[in-house]
Design a protein around this nucleic acid. Sequence first.
DNA 1: GTCAAATTTGACCTTTATTGACCTTGCAAT
DNA 2: ATTGCAAGGTCAATAAAGGTCAAATTTGAC
Lengths: 151, 151
Amino acid sequence: MATSDLIAKFILDLLENANGTLELQRATLADKFNCVPSQINYVISTRFSPEHGYIVESRRGGGGYIRITRVRSRPRQLIMHTVNAVGDSLDIRTAKAFISNVVNEGALDKRFARLILSAIGDNALRPVNQEQRDTVRASIFKQILINTISE
Amino acid sequence: MATSDLIAKFILDLLENANGTLELQRATLADKFNCVPSQINYVISTRFSPEHGYIVESRRGGGGYIRITRVRSRPRQLIMHTVNAVGDSLDIRTAKAFISNVVNEGALDKRFARLILSAIGDNALRPVNQEQRDTVRASIFKQILINTISE
DNA sequence: GTCAAATTTGACCTTTATTGACCTTGCAAT
DNA sequence: ATTGCAAGGTCAATAAAGGTCAAATTTGAC
């Protein structure tokens, strides 16, 4: 397993035990995993972004820290929030982040998630030219989410 | 026996021992069989596609992998039949007909059906211009159906 | 023996991870 | 205010995977 995955898993564990919020020292953590400090930033920005459902705050200087907080909201709300967060354009990476967040929060079934992914994946959108893909992706994504909660 | 067959057999064995799911390194495997890495893709796409009942996921970059999972699927024939019946273009009326047929046959859940409809409806495809819509619709539709039978 | 399908190869591309040099901010002792 | 250390932040270069596509070759049916 890649170092970044291990770090992410470690943070996830901490969050679990700490009931959704934690503070960590970048240098210390980097040391624990024998990596450079900036890799911690990499992990945080790729796996603990707002799209993934986390808020990250930090402070530099003596006694500095990085605080990660997991945000939860009720399913319907979360989905609407997600719909609103998606703009007119959506790349596949960001889409994946949104989806995994919604799944993690229990607001969406895994099977649905996979189905959505297949609908907005590059394979399905092959007939759409590159410049338009992200726009179409955003549209489909939002439409599906909206339909998911209606009824 | 052709190399591709040997590779396929090897993967099949691994799947057997690993109870239906496995992760492999493309380069390593290619090395083991003295072939170029892309031949692994060839084997996977010709013998472990969703149509054959497998889900393949992968990740690039450091610590990358290819994961193959064998899946159960009962109403596969009907769905595959439908996939094959859809050409390169699909208007919304025909799509609805296909979907309701599959639903009536019990091969697809109603909720899934609704989701698919919202993904290929004119609302979702608004950003796509008229001339291209049916093409895109066909592509998304097939992609979703194929993914539906895996899982 | 011919032709189409399947396989094999390789050049080139994209994505993800890792690393390190350099930058900014906060705090506290002068 | 100034200075110095203690954090954390940024960004670009490089490395480490896997993906794609089409040309070349082999195989098999007829």
